[in-house]
């Protein structure tokens, strides 16, 4: 574990992998040290945002180092089923990049159980990881200026669903009508860290 400073505004905790991030996130979320206003999990880091008027970064760092990570239960979290029409513009490219057929890409995507690792990019956007490595693809060389709302996409080890129309560089494989973000829903985001996800093909 490395703890890196972000002035008096944050502490960036660098960890070995996503599982370690999840485990520390779970432990700290259950017992938030005073002065910490927010936790921002990411692929290999957990950022603690601090209230600069009350936080003591040195004490919080000690607290973090003394915290026992919590093993995150793999089975008992909420499951969200997302219906997808697999007609994305990049489906052929993804097939080429992975050495699979279009149908095999769809099967791999629907048979994998995904889990929301962390959020970011836009409200309601979740970075989903699964056990399969067959669908790992790079981002597109050129980002699109407009990715439509509901686009289901792949990049790196992740899959995700664009919660609204936005620019984006991920490989588009399909689309869903299920709203990812509704501000008047509680909680507004369908995909929150820890939620399990199954994609289901619809035609």
């Amino acid at each position: 574990m490395r703890v890196l400073p972000c002035a008096d505004l944050g502490l960036l905790v660098e960890l070995d992998d996503l599982d370690a991030v999840r485990a520390l996130h779970a432990a700290l979320a259950a017992n938030l040290p005073p002065g910490v206003t927010d936790l921002v999990p990411a692929a290999r880091t957990l950022l603690l945002r601090l209230d600069p008027r009350t936080a003591n970064p040195a004490e919080i760092e000690q607290f973090v180092r003394a915290t026992r990570p919590v093993a995150v239960g793999e089975q008992n979290s909420e499951l969200v089923r997302i219906p997808v029409v697999y007609d994305g513009e990049d489906l052929d490219d993804v097939a080429k990049l992975t050495g699979l057929t279009r149908q095999e890409v769809i099967i791999e995507h629907t048979e994998t159980e995904w889990r929301v690792a962390f959020g970011g990019f836009a409200p309601g956007f979740g970075y989903l990881t699964g056990d399969s490595t067959k669908l790992e693809v790079p981002r597109r060389k050129e980002s699109r200026t407009k990715v439509p709302v509901g686009a289901v996409a792949l990049a790196g080890a992740f899959t995700g669903v664009y919660p609204r129309e936005s620019p984006g560089g991920w490989q588009l494989i399909g689309r869903t009508d299920l709203p990812m973000w509704q501000v008047d829903r509680d909680p507004p985001a369908l995909l929150r860290p820890g939620v399990r996800v199954r994609f289901e093909e619809v035609r």
């Binding site: 206003t37 927010d38 945002r49 959020g119 970011g120 956007f125 507004p188 995909l191 929150r192 860290p193």
Partner: peptide, 10 residues
């Protein structure tokens, strides 16, 4: 504050 996990900033 408190919504970073769902992509909402301060």
């Amino acid at each position: 504050p408190g919504h970073a996990g769902i992509g909402v900033g301060l």
